[in-house]
Design a binder for these strands. Structure first.
Lengths: 349, 349
DNA sequence: CTTAGCACTCGAAGAGTGAGAGTGCTAAGT
DNA sequence: ACTTAGCACTCTCACTCTTCGAGTGCTAAG
């Protein structure tokens, strides 16, 4: 395995990603940087095929990279072009759409930006809400026996739910209930909103349950919402533009969020690239998935990534993902020394 | 244009919708209800082609309906099977998912249900928020110079936005501002939240603007959000499963919501069916779009519909749309006599 | 170790063919 | 006057056959 073989492998990957056609020895020999004849390239390619990095769709076609080929390219061969300050600024401005004040917005914006930039589907599994604290609980009558429950967290996200009661509450009842909730829930960490805590709440309120049961149930549902981290897709429809991804598989993939979710929540660090290694894998055939963790004050609190065709400009896309996950980490981390929410236009280096 | 020709046209439409193959005279002649020979059917089909209701993909193929053919079928020929009480109940239960307490939820659920039932994309343009009233305005500090503005309407929808100020407000300032907003905005109809009203607000607060300008701006944005009715899609991805719809066109269509929005807001009554009449139309080729208005207390306040292939079981889908739009009308109308929010399980006939 | 030369392989694209589905027309039947 | 059987005709689809060319592996010479 010499230098030149690696160079040829890299060239095959890049050329195949660019054109979508199997790459032949003639084309490679003509490439700058490869200063040997087609015959030599052929010999090297035969060796690379032997090693499992390349394959031939059929005897008289060029070579295409195998999964191992892509792996080797991504891990050792590709040379991501450094990002220019202008580019960084462009990315930053995409993050700041509508002045993302809350963590949730930061993360959602970053995911949408990633989908847009890469023309792939982007996905994020955010369980940072679990590490926040209930900062406010309100019950607001909105007319006709309907009451709105609001839960606001320290991370700035709002959950709400409307409930219909059998009877209207008196002001006194409302104030009491509202006060009780504030007393007992505000300051509690979301992770501690266990079903037991909810059961306690229900027990404590049992005397009043007849009247307010839908409200209590609403609160339980909201707390469950908060605890379970949501998986969000952006730009799924980008996937449908790629010829080499099967529509049915895409739909299956999008609809089975649970498997994806399990995978994203796996603990790992750095960037991870996944392919459909075997037919039973839930990853879409001919697709690749690149995921990265982001952190909040040192703890892993979510993963984001893109799903696209295997023929992907990894040298461009991977740095984007790295940049975004680092950026999210900076923006949502609590320690102002190591990263905090800054205004658009500030520099981040 | 006699009875039999109409029967044949209907049969061609139904058969073509079912199989996707051009329909020949032999198949038609064999159909129950058509008791003439294939030759006679051929003569009639030739006449229907002359009249512009049918066309031949090529000389030796069967006939397929033209747009006019579909139109005539939809307007006069199809016989929608009446919905059984069980079916109505099934539809009703789809509407009640998660006990749709607010109008917004009712409408969103109905749209999702429609997409699911028809396996098409469903779309809704809801401007009912314009006819509701601001019932509550709150400003809630959520830490670190961040304040959350909440707008709640009488229809039960919540809009919120987080704003970052330069400095923290004192309790006094917060109470004053909060009170001022309640005083001046609560009870105002959303339709009246004009830019002028906002300008007045800004003028009145000018003395304090330095400190709270992001908040005021946030309010303006929220009021704009409320006034402009959102166009929502559900199940867009269903469209990608249809062979005869072009992916690129689908994407173009979904991304250009403005044209669609213009069309949905057009005033019309009853059900409207659209096809791609000419190549410049923004409607997807080979697709059809069926839209219907729903009302609130007599006023048109939104439209919902489905977008699917032209080969659609109109006799099934159109009644669904009619039923849902009527149901929404019932559920969101204010007059309890003619329709009001009822609990799941109640009857609606 | 590299390269030119060459025979070989195999898919893509085009041409040719037969089968089959469907038509329009004509002439006979009711 | 309308319906129907019969028939010649048309045109696509699926299939085969063939050619073309890109790309290969191997060999032998540099």
């Amino acid at each position: 395995m010499n230098e030149r073989k690696l160079k040829i492998l890299a060239a095959v990957v890049e050329e195949y990603v660019r054109t979508g056609e199997p790459v032949g020895s003639k084309i490679l020999a003509a490439l700058p940087g490869i200063n040997v004849s087609a015959a030599t390239v052929r010999n090297d390619m035969a060796a690379l095929e032997q090693l499992g990095y390349l394959e031939q769709p059929h005897t008289s076609a060029g070579r295409i990279p195998t999964i191992s080929g892509y792996r080797l390219y991504i891990e050792q061969l590709m040379k991501p072009p450094g990002m220019s300050p202008e580019e960084k600024q462009r990315l930053d401005s995409m993050l700041a759409i509508h002045g993302s004040v809350t963590e949730e917005l930061v993360i959602q914006n970053a995911t949408a930006a990633l989908a847009e930039l890469t023309q792939c589907a982007a996905v994020v599994s955010d369980f940072s809400p679990q590490f926040s604290v209930i900062s406010k609980v309100e019950v607001i009558p909105t007319g006709r026996k309907i009451y709105m429950i609001l839960l606001i967290t320290s991370a700035g996200s709002i959950k709400n739910k409307a409930c219909r009661l059998e009877f209207d509450l008196t002001n006194e009842q409302l104030n009491w209930f509202s006060g009780y909730l504030s007393e007992n829930l505000e300051g509690i960490s979301v992770a501690d909103l266990s079903d037991e805590l909810m059961a306690d709440l229900i027990a404590a309120l049992s005397a009043y349950m007849m009247a307010i049961s839908p409200l209590v149930q609403g609160i339980c549902e909201l707390s469950r919402d908060l605890r379970q981290h949501a998986l969000t897709f952006k730009g799924e429809k980008n996937l449908f533009s790629y010829q080499d991804l099967d529509r049915m598989e895409i739909i299956r993939f999008i609809e089975h969020k649970d498997e994806l979710s399990r995978l994203l929540d796996d603990s790992f660090s750095g960037i991870r690239v996944l392919f459909q290694e075997d037919k039973n894998s839930f990853v879409i055939g001919n697709s690749s998935m690149i995921v990265s963790k982001y952190r909040k004050s040192g703890k892993n609190v979510g993963s984001l990534g893109v799903i696209g065709p295997m023929r992907l400009d990894y040298a461009k896309v991977i740095p984007y993902i790295e940049y975004f996950s680092q950026k999210i980490t900076d923006l949502i981390s609590e320690n102002p020394e190591e990263g905090h929410i800054k205004k658009e236009g500030d520099s981040h280096d």
